[in-house]
Amino acid sequence: MTSSRPRPQVMTLTDAAAKRVSEIMAQKPNIVGLRLGVKKGGCAGMEYTMTWAESQDKFDEVVEDKGVKLLIEPMAIMYLLGTEMDYVQDKLSFGFVFNNPNQQSACGCGESVNLAPAAADKLAALKVS
């Protein structure tokens, strides 16, 4: 028996992020989506990873938001749950930023973050019955 309630999305995109990802993907043939993950590194402990994916892996969590397909690496789900990805541009810099409720701190340069796993009840909501 399957659950009738919809599963929550692991991540969402702002309009600016969706527009920028779509613009870049339009220039890259054979790309099926943007793969997101986290890895150990940096002075705060973890770093976000982003790569263009030519194929979807069997265990990727697929998020489709505003016409963009995100492929979330399985081990990153617990750290990215509830995250909003944005694209910001100002006079001195531009780039993607992550508004992540699981982020406890960040280094001064903004390249690495300290992330805690999402609460167990929030992770349980992702499970398909």
Rank of each mutant, 00 (worst) to 15 (best):
22 S>T: 14
75 M>D: 14
87 Y>W: 13
106 A>N: 09
103 Q>M: 10
101 P>L: 03
89 Q>S: 14
45 G>E: 10
47 E>W: 09
99 N>E: 12
86 D>F: 01
68 V>C: 02
104 Q>L: 12
100 N>G: 09
28 K>P: 06
74 P>F: 14
73 E>G: 10
51 T>Q: 13
40 K>L: 14
110 G>L: 10
53 A>D: 05
50 M>D: 08
42 G>F: 05
91 K>Y: 07
21 V>K: 00
70 L>V: 09
106 A>R: 12
115 L>P: 00
84 E>G: 11
17 A>F: 01
79 Y>A: 02
25 M>Q: 15
62 V>P: 03
115 L>I: 07
66 K>L: 12
97 V>M: 12
40 K>N: 12
55 S>W: 13
56 Q>A: 05
34 L>T: 11
54 E>D: 15
67 G>Y: 10
53 A>C: 11
74 P>R: 15
23 E>K: 08
29 P>G: 06
55 S>Q: 15
107 C>T: 06
64 E>Q: 11
94 F>W: 02
105 S>C: 03
58 K>P: 09
91 K>L: 14
65 D>E: 15
27 Q>E: 12
39 K>Y: 05
77 I>E: 06
71 L>E: 02
109 C>G: 10
80 L>M: 04
33 G>T: 04
54 E>Q: 14
46 M>Y: 07
44 A>N: 04
92 L>I: 05
101 P>H: 02
